[in-house]
């Protein structure tokens, strides 16, 4: 085939050897000069929809992380005596919840890019016209939805099993959950892309992710403990809301801007 091209004749599957090379499509006046390309966010949403669709069809990461978080709640019950009335569960419920959420979240984050390795799908995604930032954002949005779904179900299970009242500050609790989950998602998805081609992928992701997540997890644990204890957000714990907001904004921007270093390589 290469020989035929050098000789000046094109080769196509339909026509075999052809005497003259085909004109390039862009020169054809009937075609628009610039093909219409969808916007950045539309591309991100397309990738998110694709990921969610394939996850909802198999439900492998969803079921696994849900089961995992219930297992963690079960194990916590052996760390202390939940029936002991002297122990106020509200004092450390935030820590229990967010440890379970962070561990369960890592399961789906590990799968996020690894599932694209089969059939070289990751190469196809990177080679597609979608910019790396949109690819990252799409993956992150899908992970966000999945982790949040697991968290909401787990929160219900936790409230029932440990007799914790989530209603009094439910609004703020949801806000804190949304912001912290996005922090976990951004760092986790970026590092999932970072580790996807490494030998010890499953090992490297938690080693890198958890130390990075300490500021948002610290904020979430403090805030959730306050909120589950019935204490509203006021001047003294507002600073941790700000930590969460700043972390989310700064790392989202950094990840979208710099992710091409990792993905395109």
């Amino acid at each position: 085939m290469a020989k035929a091209e050098r000789g000046g004749a094109g080769f196509s599957l339909q026509g075999g050897l052809q005497p003259t090379p085909q004109p390039m499509p862009a020169l054809n006046p009937q075609l628009p000069a610039e093909p219409h390309s969808p916007s950045f966010f539309r591309q991100a949403l397309t990738i998110a929809a694709k990921d969610l669709r394939s996850e909802l069809r198999t439900k492998e990461a969803l079921n696994a992380s849900l089961a995992f978080s219930v297992v963690i709640f079960l194990l916590f019950s052996f760390a202390f005596d939940p029936g002991n009335l002297d122990i106020d569960i509200n004092e450390f419920s935030g820590g229990l919840l967010w440890l379970a959420f962070a561990f369960a979240g890592a399961l789906s984050l590990n799968r996020s890019f690894a599932r694209e390795l089969q059939n070289d799908c990751l190469d196809a995604l990177v080679a597609s016209p979608a910019p790396p930032g949109a690819l990252f954002l799409g993956k992150a949005l899908a992970n966000f939805a999945l982790i949040l779904a697991v968290e909401i179900i787990s929160l219900g299970v936790f409230a029932v099993m440990y007799n914790v009242h989530i209603q009094p500050q439910l609004g703020w609790l949801i806000v804190v959950m949304l912001m912290t989950t996005w922090a976990i998602t951004v760092i986790g998805t970026a590092f999932s892309a970072l580790t996807v081609n490494l030998r010890m992928r499953e090992l490297m992701l938690p080693i890198l992710t958890y130390p990075f997540l300490i500021p948002p997890l610290m904020a979430a644990i403090l805030l959730t403990t306050d909120l589950l204890g019935g204490k509203p957000i006021s001047a003294d714990n507002m600073i941790w809301v700000r930590v969460l907001v700043a972390f989310d904004v700064i790392f989202s921007l950094l990840a979208v801007v710099f992710i091409d270093i990792v993905l395109v390589g």
């Binding site: 970072l194 080693i207 790392f251 950094l254 710099f258 270093i261 990792v262 390589g265």
Partner: peptide, 25 residues
């Protein structure tokens, strides 16, 4: 640890540069 896990020098350099930016922030 990440640097030890990547064999290819260019890939190692890129991945660790990315991590260094995130780490310093």
């Amino acid at each position: 640890i990440l640097r030890r896990a990547v064999d290819e020098p260019t890939q190692r350099a890129k991945l660790s540069a990315f991590l260094s930016i995130f780490g310093c922030v």
